[in-house]
């Protein structure tokens, strides 16, 4: 790993100010993704601003909003009694992520900021439009079994690796940012960007902005939610396909439904047309099948990832049937 300078920040404002004052600096919290990126040379930084002393690790439920501090650790949020009871999809997504050791270390802000697992991105010997804009995307015609079938293009088809981001996308979370120009909020649906012709720009966060908190609205449907993650091995693995789902029915009729998907899109994938296909209709095999077809209508599979088109529809059916009480 190339050497770098290091500063411990005492307050969020101090962190932002310090980072703004040092060229090519970045923030570090758990370090579980950043240190590997720096070892591999996928990212180089001359200075790290350590966030671990910041008072941003509270998880609170006040009124109608769950507020998750950016420095809360994955384990703490996953085990929080009210998160487990009222937002089970968040707890399940976190517990399906990484390993127990990493969940003790990794922060919520860092989890949302982690970089794609695309092997070409992680290998500085390969071209990559994310890492080196304009150099090309070998994944489009190369090894792309793990890549996106939605939201991509010829510039990039990498998926976002965070399970938590998928669950937060289903629940309409808001990301709170603090930067040199002050604080602002970005709905998570706008936080992650489609790659378009600038896949190096992954989020709406501006240079030097720090995630301070994630707000999740408390809704009845969030309490009836779950996360289904399909992997190449039973555990400690990234998603091939995942579904974050929340569902409320009366009788068999769908009264409220939220769906987001991992492993299939270039960002945590939400398509409200899929939800519209279910809303107000009985939760029948036909309705679920139609919702699945809407989801993959614009799919653009590549040489190795075509299996995801059917897999994600089956995953959707499985999780809806389970939440709907069919099994």
């Amino acid at each position: 790993m190339r050497n770098f300078g290091y500063t411990v920040a005492r307050t969020p404002a101090d962190a932002v100010r310090t980072a703004a004052g040092i060229a090519n600096s970045t923030f570090v919290a758990g370090g579980t993704d950043l240190l590997n990126l720096m070892r591999d040379g996928a990212e180089t930084h001359d200075h790290l601003v350590d966030l671990n002393r910041l008072d941003l690790d509270d998880v609170t439920l006040d009124g109608q909003t769950l507020r998750i501090g950016a420095l809360a650790r994955m384990r703490g949020v996953a085990e929080h009694p009210r998160v487990r009871r009222e937002f089970p999809v968040l707890s399940e997504a976190l517990l399906a992520s990484a390993s127990p050791q990493v969940r003790n270390m990794a922060s919520i802000g860092g989890n949302l900021s982690q970089r794609t697992r695309c092997g070409y991105f992680r290998d500085p010997g390969s071209a990559c439009n994310k890492r080196d804009p304009g150099s090309g995307c070998p994944a489009v015609t190369g090894r792309n079994r793990g890549h996106a079938i939605l939201g991509g293009g010829d510039h990039c088809i990498a998926t976002h690796p965070s399970d938590l981001a998928v669950a937060l996308t289903a629940l309409d979370a808001t990301v709170r940012l603090l930067g040199p120009d002050g604080a602002r909020s970005v709905p998570i649906a706008d936080f992650y960007l489609l790659p378009g012709t600038t896949p190096d720009r992954e989020t709406a966060a501006r240079p030097g902005e720090l995630i301070t908190r994630v707000d999740v609205p408390r809704t009845r449907v969030a309490a009836d939610s779950r996360y289904l993650k399909l992997r190449d091995r039973a555990t400690f693995e990234f998603a091939v396909v995942s579904v974050a789902a929340a569902l409320r029915t009366r009788g068999r009729v769908v009264r409220d439904v939220r769906l987001a998907f991992g492993g299939i899109g270039t960002r945590p994938w939400r398509d409200t047309r899929v939800e519209a296909a279910l809303l107000g209709r009985p939760l029948t095999e036909a309705a679920i099948g139609e919702a699945g077809r809407v989801l993959v209508r614009d799919a653009d599979p590549r040489t190795e990832n075509g299996f995801k088109v059917e897999l994600v529809q089956r995953a959707l059916a499985s999780v809806l049937n389970e939440l709907g009480g069919k099994r």
Binding site: Y6, G31, N52, N104
Partner: peptide
Amino acid sequence: LADGERIKSCLTLAVM
């Protein structure tokens, strides 16, 4: 173990 919790010591800096 760091403060009783298991961590991977290769993924954290000693200064942290």
